[in-house]
C-alpha cells in the first residue's frame, strides 16, 4: 500500500470500531454486519481515514457512526447519490454505502437502479430484514404479501415483493452477492470481495429483526450456501435467480463491465480562457 497509515502495526477489526454505542435492539442482526464490516476492513488493511461509509435513514443506516472511518449519515433513501458524488470526485477513497431494505428499495429504489446502471466503483450493502424497524413494524418492499402484522397493512401488503438481486442484475450491477448476519466471517469475506471487485458491487445481507419479525430467528436454519461459483455471464446469473429461494448465500455474479470513471483533476489556471467565447471581435 502506498498510503502511509498512522501505525505500521497491522490493523485489527476493533481498530475500525468507534466508541459510540449502537441504538440497535439486543439480538439485532446488524451487530454482526457491523462486525463483518470491521473484519473486512482489517482483512484489506484499509487506512481508516481513506474509507467513507455513507448511509440513509433507518436502523441499519446508523452504522457509519459506529465505525472509526469517515461517515455521512444522509437523508432517507439518498445515500447512493451521496456516495456517487463523493467517489467520482475522490477516486482515491474507498466508498461504501450501507442501509436497509426500506431505504434502498422503496424510497431510494430509483437511485438503486441508477447506481447499478452507472457502475461507479463502490460497494452497496443492504441489511435486509423485510420490515421497517425504526418506525416500529411496517411492511417493507421485501416483505411477503401475506404478512399481516404490519401496522399500516393489517391485511398484508398484497403486493409483490421487490426482488433486489434480480433488479441489480437487470440494472447492470457489476457484482451481486447475498450473505447472512448469522455468519459474520462469511459476510466479511463477501464484503471484501465486493470492495475489491471493480464497479458497483451490491451485497444483500439477510439481517433479522427479532423485535418486529421474531420468526426471522429461524433464518439461521434456512439459509444455505449456493452450490455454484460466481459467474460473469448475466444470462447464467439470471437463470440461477429463477430458482432462487431467497436464502441462497454466496456470490452470484462478478461482471466485467467497465466502471464509470470520468477523469477528474481540477485545474484552476485555465478558467479565464473560457471568457474568450464571449468576447466580441469588434
Amino acid at each position: 500500500m502506498d498510503q502511509t497509515s498512522t501505525s505500521t502495526a497491522a490493523l485489527k477489526p476493533k481498530d475500525y470500531k468507534s466508541d459510540t454505542k449502537p441504538v440497535w435492539c439486543p439480538g439485532c442482526g446488524d451487530f454482526s454486519v457491523l462486525s463483518a464490516f470491521t473484519k473486512a476492513m482489517a482483512a484489506m488493511q484499509l487506512d481508516p481515514e481513506r474509507v467513507v461509509v455513507i448511509s440513509g435513514i433507518g436502523c441499519s443506516s446508523r452504522i457509519p457512526a459506529y465505525l472509526n472511518v469517515y461517515g455521512f449519515h444522509a437523508v432517507h433513501g439518498r445515500a447512493l447519490p451521496v456516495g456517487i458524488g463523493l467517489k467520482i470526485t475522490r477516486p482515491d477513497l474507498t466508498v461504501m454505502v450501507a442501509g436497509g431494505d426500506g431505504d434502498g428499495f422503496s424510497i431510494g429504489g430509483n437511485h438503486f437502479m441508477q447506481a447499478c446502471r452507472r457502475n461507479v466503483d463502490m460497494t452497496y450493502v443492504v441489511m435486509d430484514n423485510q420490515v421497517y424497524g425504526m418506525t416500529k413494524g411496517q411492511a417493507s418492499p421485501t416483505t411477503e404479501p401475506d404478512w399481516e402484522r404490519g401496522k399500516l397493512t393489517p391485511h398484508g401488503t398484497r403486493i409483490n415483493p421487490f426482488y433486489p438481486l434480480v433488479i441489480a442484475l437487470a440494472s447492470g450491477a457489476n457484482f451481486i452477492a447475498r450473505a447472512s448476519s448469522n455468519d459474520p466471517n462469511g459476510a466479511a469475506r463477501v464484503i471484501t470481495e465486493a470492495v475489491q471487485h471493480p464497479g458497483f458491487s451490491f451485497v444483500q445481507i439477510l439481517s433479522p429483526c427479532i423485535t418486529f419479525r421474531p420468526e426471522q430467528r429461524d433464518w439461521k436454519k434456512i439459509v444455505h450456501p449456493a452450490p455454484v461459483v460466481a459467474t460473469a455471464d448475466p444470462a447464467v446469473a439470471a437463470r440461477r435467480l429463477m430458482t432462487d429461494d431467497n436464502f441462497f448465500i454466496g456470490t452470484l455474479f462478478k461482471g466485467e463491465r467497465v466502471p464509470f470513471t470520468p477523469e477528474f483533476e481540477p485545474r484552476a489556471e485555465s478558467a479565464h480562457e473560457l471568457e474568450t467565447a464571449f468576447r466580441m471581435s469588434a
Binding site: 447512493l80 458524488g85 477513497l93 473560457l274
Partner: peptide, 29 residues
Amino acid sequence: QVGGILVQAEDELASVNQLIGASFGGTPS
C-alpha cells in the same frame, strides 16, 4: 476544460445529494 465534471443525474433528488457527497470530499459543487 478546467478539470471538473458535470454528471447528468436521474432526478433532482440525486443531483443535490451528489453535490453533498462531492462537497463532503472537498470539491466546491
